[in-house]
Design a protein around this nucleic acid. Sequence first.
DNA 1: CAGCATCCCCGCAGATACTG
DNA 2: CAGTATCTGCGGGGATGCTG
Lengths: 133, 133
Amino acid sequence: MAVSEEVGSAPLVAGEAMCPHRLILEHVTSRWGVLVLIELLDRPHRFSELRRAIGRVSEKMLTQTLQTLERDGLVHRDAKPVIPPRVDYSLTGLGREAAEQVRGLAMWTEERMAEVLTAREAYDARKNAPDQG
Amino acid sequence: MAVSEEVGSAPLVAGEAMCPHRLILEHVTSRWGVLVLIELLDRPHRFSELRRAIGRVSEKMLTQTLQTLERDGLVHRDAKPVIPPRVDYSLTGLGREAAEQVRGLAMWTEERMAEVLTAREAYDARKNAPDQG
DNA sequence: CAGCATCCCCGCAGATACTG
DNA sequence: CAGTATCTGCGGGGATGCTG
């Protein structure tokens, strides 16, 4: 796979010093990027619809996430020149591909959640009582 | 999809107040979690092999990531009782499923990297010269 | 409604030192 | 070699106020 990188410290959002491949990956797997892509896979959303759909995201982070995804060509921003303002966000072709990958991951976590929770209990039990048997 | 959540502020790694589904998703999509899963998909790795393979990860973060993934039942930790210590990490069945999803995402970013970079240039050009035509 | 600017906190994550 | 423990910074990200 070779996802490795060279050297160079970089912040996440503006860290353009990182190898491009990893940077794109971080955008689509970012905390809010994942959720935005999944929501938009259903249908286009207005800004406030996205906020409500995702739940607990500040407008700042949502704006920032949308801008990053738009810049990467994954999200299309359609600002209607009306009062009050109306902006619709939708996936581009590229974005839909990414979103489908991300959705696959999200669906997997739903399907396997119970098994993960069970594994956690077993792990915690081992840690709390390593040799009591 | 319904990936929404209720209310409650939480740190990422130890934030158990978040809905489990989202928490698992954040583990596997975390900065280093993604890379660990992909590397382990190739073959089991020793701790130091993983460090080298991933590139620029501190031992602390690698340890923490591996522990999180082990706790979630995605990674198997095999510590041989030898001197010097030897610990092999491999994917569980569950982990392999997750890793394959993650790899799908990583492969997509590789394939589409050029298009994303092109989109970025177009975006930046629009921003720098919005109406100069 | 959609977004930008600003302030500020705290937790992620790196550096360092130590242990088995 | 494979970790653990502790300190520290800095940037992610929330809160608030303002604009078009």
